[in-house]
Amino acid sequence: MATPVVQSESQTERGWLSRGFHALRDYPMLAAGLVLILAIVAMSVIGPLFVERDWVNVGYAMPDQKPSREYLLGTDTVGRQLLAIIIYGTPLTLKIGLIAGGIGLSVGMLFGLVSGYYGGIWDHVLRGAADAFLTIPGLLVLVVIATTLQGGISVTTQALVVSALAWMYPTRTIRSQVLSIRERSYVQLARFSGMNGFEIIVKEILPNLLPYLAASFVGAVSAGILASIGLEALGLGPQNEPTLGMTIYWSMYYTSILRNLWWWWAPPIVVIVIIFTGLFLISAGLDQVANPRLRNRI
């Protein structure tokens, strides 16, 4: 259906931050997701002001206490306070996600841009590598790596382990977008304007990839967090850190379910659900940004 040609007035020069806020009104999903994640981040930042770090450690409180005014989320079997664990452990999980996201995106961008734009041998090698790695059962590999690195791995090491398998989807997504943008007339015109390959990639192609880069980043963060929680729940994580996954592991180790210590296994799960819901909404919102047809409003 043809929409009429409209002659727009020139855009008022608001700052990009203000424009960003106003734009969010058009994307409720994106806004909702950002709110959820920001809430989690706020908790991690503000929480430590009210909660002592020591309360995370063993033996600082009475064990097996139900939630009360003294212990807001109760305590576990070895005397750790759940409130402190949630407040100090969540940022660790987020950190793993961010590192995995960062590495996944960076490698994905590099491989995807080079492989998509230059094609040829680069495409064969890089895309082939991504495809090959995709077929590897991820958790299995991570289990093997984690077991080999046994003995007090740090959160950072955990993050690096998980990142090893975070780059393939970004590579493929970015590559296919580059393939499509490469054929656009404005890229051809840039060549006629004297730009070389690198300049074209950075100045012409990259800006149009921003929604896809953001979506890939969010996807890699989600995958990273999920993988790390999976490993930790199996006991293969940083044993001395109160990450969300390790908390779940310990709660199972001490049979908290049978003993009805719901305040032990429920809070980490709730936080995990909030994180993933937030990430999902952000991802769906970015989909709407990238693809105007998915938008509900005009």
Partner: peptide, 9 residues
């Protein structure tokens, strides 16, 4: 080029 729409980034 032919297409005055596609040719602008």
């Amino acid at each position: 080029f032919q297409d005055p729409y596609e040719v602008y980034n």
